[in-house]
Amino acid sequence: MESPALIEIKNLKTHFFLDEGTVQAVNGVDFSIHQHKTLCVVGESGCGKSVTARSILQIVDQPGRIVEGEILFHRPSRSDNGSETTETIDLAALNPRGREIRAIRGQDISMIFQEPMTSLSPIHTVGNQVTEAIKLHTDMLDDEAKEHSIELLRRVGIPRPEERFDTYPFELSGGMRQRVMIAMALSCNPALLIADEPTTAVDVTTQAQILELLEELQDEFGMAIMLITHDLGVVAEMADDVVVMYLGQVAERGDVDSIFHDPKHPYTQSLLKSIPRLGVSRNRQRLDSIRGMVPDPYNRPTGCMFGPRCDHFMPGRCDAINPPAIPLGPGREVHCLLYEEE
């Protein structure tokens, strides 16, 4: 029933070394992404979702660096005889500028971003940018690559793709641009598609269309999706598994049903309480309507990161011990001392 893991992240730490100090953007994160499944990552702004995602591809901005941990990628080999074998690569150990990671980027794992406006080069045509990865990773000729790209553009729902092929991104609407991004990301049939808040910058109708498109494409291409979002409604709709992050750490993770119906971590509970019930403008609901605010990255609390905002705060324990992972079932764990076995 449980499909094999595609990515296993173990104790990942990615830090930014700034003049003012070190920002521990991701500080000991564990989770797995399974083949053909959708994993949603939720959490307040700044909790390290994007940095985690970028760590997978080793495209963390300077002065950030993976300082510890493993990112095991079980790469499905596309052998000709049809047999499915996997080879395991530790992405965290690869040189960010090296050949191996470049071969994985855009081919096995691809990514789409929040800002379809600025994530495409303003002065290169759509076609140029979409065919780029194809030309890079396959040995298709120019004509074939073009044909393939037009097919992809058509598939992601861009009308008259032959014409769009030669237009510039600024001639397209936000939704169209995001579709171009998706076409670009899918051009080499990746095993994993990372979508970092793909619908935050587009309007509501478009948002729904794009999510629907992603689901369809997942059925068709069979890739796993790691979807980063602020919107719990989206999570409910899309996710198979959920990871709730808080201040660079995992608060709780599990399958979507148990997270929604039986949230354990006080943070998850308050997150869920903050969604308005029954459809009333559920979209665009930010997650920050929890008491207090995210502490600034230089002054992290001691003990449990959520302690200062927690209703069940236990003095003497929660401010002393950073809660370890407490397993609650297969693929389900929570980081909270409330559930510690005596």
Binding site: R286, D288, S289, M293
Partner: peptide
Amino acid sequence: PPETVSPGAVQAEVESSV
């Protein structure tokens, strides 16, 4: 008092205070 602060305002204040 935290209860009286709307989510957006928290956001704004956080930014402005820093």
